[in-house]
Amino acid sequence: MKSLLKLTWVELKLFFREPLTLVFSFALPVVFLLVMGGVFGNKPDTSSMHIYRGVGAVNYYNPAYIALVLASIGIVAMPVHLTSYRERRVLKRFHASSFSVWDVIGSQILVSFFIAILGSILLTVVSMFVYHSEAPKMWVYLIPAFILGTLCFTALGVMLGAILPNTRAAQGIGLMLFFVMMILGGAGPPPEVMGTVMRDVGKATPIWYVIRLLQDPWLGFGWNVITSLIVGGITVVATAITVKFFKWD
């Protein structure tokens, strides 16, 4: 337990010393929120298309960009971090001094939660302050949705860190997945205006479901059972793959 907490504290400091991940986790989602809010405002669409699920754009994007924060932690930051640890034999060094695999992965989970909470608060404060967006409506569902979403992207990040061969691969693949998710998964243009193919690609990404998982309680639509099962399923599969492929060196 002592090792886990020490490692988490060090990892947290290391996260804040890495400019690139700070940009992706904190700056980028806020910038997108400001731009989208500036372009589309926060008036609900009253046409028959029900763009943005019938709610104001900023109300729609606030939970969507929280999902983007989770994705940036899990897809951009963590795979690079873990592959470079293996490449440079940091993992082996940890292994040699009785850090367990649970210390290593547990510290990543705890850091993810901390960054995710911080990023979400930052986004929501900006959104409410600049665009007077609405506060989340159903906290009872939102909190478990947030926990599940964070676990899902952390599991995906650890999995990519376990299966990708090196840091270069992690950088390339991580950034590519991140941008596909951002643009097509529901954090870019409203899904209602995308073509079928684009929407299908979006639906094949985990962020599509994490966005819905967060949006439903945020906007007062309740708890989406099917979405939560899909997100839970992705988490379980990613964890199973990690257990199978994780190597110290």
Partner: peptide, 14 residues
């Protein structure tokens, strides 16, 4: 036990 491994490293920013 204590171990100093061949060619191991630490995170750059630690």
């Amino acid at each position: 036990i204590g171990s100093q491994l061949q060619e191991s490293a630490l995170p750059d920013r630690i």
